[in-house]
Design a protein around this nucleic acid. Structure first.
Length: 264
DNA sequence: AAGTTTCACAACCGCCTAGGC
DNA sequence: GGCCTAGGCGGTTGTGAAACT
């Protein structure tokens, strides 16, 4: 892919924004909106690239942004969500109204990570928990095997998201706090690996391409056994908490029917 | 008081993906 | 189907302020 020339080469300004630039950007967006970020700076009369304008707006100028220190509740929420989601800052930000992914990321790196380290268990207890901790501090602590854990919490039970869904799909839900998460922060959930969805895509296309039902059932069976190992009870618990939408319910129901319900 | 280090956060960079053509 | 672009995301850097020596 051919990259657009950087701002400086285009004679565009970089670095901190001035109050005048802010004012121009705000008044333009309030008047005309931001349909096309690339065209916006030109139309607004700013010597900035569209990307810079977008970042300035989304991270700083947006009227719904909450400025000021994070409350204890917000910090706990970030910690809980980070434990579940890892470094998916935008997903975390979607659950904290008025906070941006950039702000949350900064708070995490400068403060919360250290706070967590201070509260970290002693080496003994650490050994016991070793199966739940990852090599990297920034990786989800309850996610020992997968690259990305696609489990999100929608009020009560965690939701397993398909790749077509994002946390922003749930922005209508109220802000998540450690209280209304309604969960034990030490609770761990079976991990859904990102590869699950691609595997299921493959199986789905096999289905539509007319793979014999028995073969398909076996393939799905094996896939699920593998993905949800170590034991079928784990899978059962996955079904129990993961199916919060009718679509998901139907999807998994179909899948399990084909795989042979008795197995689970 | 001056120099150095650490902290906090805004901004940038580069990669990825969806969607249009 | 392949190319291109815009927008989104996470990682990293730059810089001013605060704290420390």
């Amino acid at each position: 892919m051919v990259r657009a020339p950087c701002c400086e080469k285009m004679g565009l300004k970089k670095g901190p924004w001035t109050p005048e630039e802010d004012q121009i950007l705000i008044s333009y967006i309030l008047k005309y909106g931001h349909g096309n970020w690339r065209a916006l700076p030109k139309l607004a009369g700013l010597l900035r690239c569209g990307k810079s304008c977008r970042l300035r707006w989304t991270n700083y100028l947006r009227p719904d942004i909450k400025r000021g220190n994070f409350t204890k509740e917000e910090e706990d929420t970030i910690i809980n969500l980070h434990e579940m989601l890892g470094n998916r800052w935008s997903a975390i930000a979607a659950r904290l109204p008025g906070r941006t992914d950039n702000e949350i990321k900064n708070v995490w790196h400068t403060y919360l990570k250290k706070r967590l380290k201070q509260n970290q268990p002693t080496p003994d207890t650490k050994t016991q928990l070793s199966s739940q901790t990852s090599k990297c501090d920034d990786e989800p602590m309850s996610n020992p095997t997968s690259n990305v854990m696609r489990i999100e919490n929608q009020g009560h039970a965690p939701v397993v998201l398909s790749p077509q869904q994002s946390s922003s799909d749930f922005t209508d839900s109220s802000a998540v706090t450690s209280e209304n998460l309604n969960m034990d922060s030490s609770a761990t959930f079976p991990v859904i690996d990102e590869s699950l969805w691609s595997d299921i895509d493959i199986l789905s296309s096999a289905e539509t391409s007319g793979m014999p039902e028995n073969n398909l059932a076996m393939a799905v069976d094996q896939e699920l056994q593998f993905l949800f190992s170590p034991d079928p009870a784990t899978l059962e618990s996955v079904c129990g908490f993961g199916l919060n939408t009718n679509e998901e319910m139907d999807f998994w129901y179909d899948l399990f029917m084909k795989a042979g319900e008795s197995e689970f």
